[in-house]
């Protein structure tokens, strides 16, 4: 039995298919939630668990591919498409849009398991990336305005002297700011700080060479 910390969402307009897929997933140990239309899925208060969305292409309220496009701007579980008749253009479009798989009804058990597993695995990774980033954002949020000014300069690779000159402060003051940043960002090394800054997408605004040339 799978632990209940994973969930599969199913959107299909045919009750028999919803029911059967739910049954099969349950027999495989997955918790599932089924919806007849996309709107119901959107409205559903989803538990914060690694998840997968099995989406029928032919939905009564919106085409599955179109729905995928609507979801793309938001955080959402990886999608496994299900269709009565798969055609190549739709498949390509779905995969390009980030779908994990494109399955044709009736779908075999092994295909379904592989697709759901892959999707949930991908969701796990996405979730952990998102969690890590959220932690970094939290750390960044405790930096003072001056420290937020210093951070881009130092991770750009400027010498302390150059960064201090850029901000019009003494080198000593800058070194203090830098120490506090290292501490608050829980960076174990300067290289770690650079990696963190990269994940936070802090822009590299200066380079040592341009700084030199300005002097």
């Amino acid at each position: 039995m799978k632990p209940p910390e994973e969930i599969v969402f199913i959107v299909d307009d045919d009750a028999r298919v919803r029911e059967a897929l739910g049954e099969l997933l349950e027999s495989l140990g997955w918790q599932s939630a089924t919806f007849a239309v996309a709107a119901d899925y959107v409205a559903y208060a989803k538990p914060d668990l690694p998840a997968c969305l099995i989406l029928d292409v032919e939905l009564p309220d919106v085409n599955g591919l179109e729905f995928q496009r609507q979801l793309s701007s938001d955080v959402h579980p990886p999608i496994v498409f299900l269709t009565g008749h798969g055609d190549i253009p739709s498949t390509v479009r779905a995969i390009q849009g980030g779908a994990v798989d494109f399955l044709t009804k009736p779908v075999g058990e092994s295909d379904l398991i592989a697709a759901v597993r892959a999707a949930i695995q991908r969701d796990r990774e996405q979730r952990s990336t998102r969690a890590e980033l959220a932690d970094l954002v939290r750390r960044f949020s405790v930096l003072t305005p001056r420290e937020r000014e210093v951070l881009p300069l130092v991770v750009s690779g400027l010498l302390n002297k150059q960064a201090a000159a850029e901000l019009g402060i003494s080198e000593i003051t800058l070194e203090i700011h830098r120490g506090k940043i290292m501490h608050k960002m829980e960076a174990t090394s300067f290289a770690d700080l650079v990696r963190i800054a990269e994940k936070l997408q802090i822009p590299i605004t200066h380079s040592r060479r341009s700084g030199n040339s300005r002097e």
Partner: peptide, 8 residues
């Protein structure tokens, strides 16, 4: 549709 349900 029924076939898909049957298989599942």
């Amino acid at each position: 549709q029924p076939l898909a349900a049957i298989v599942a």
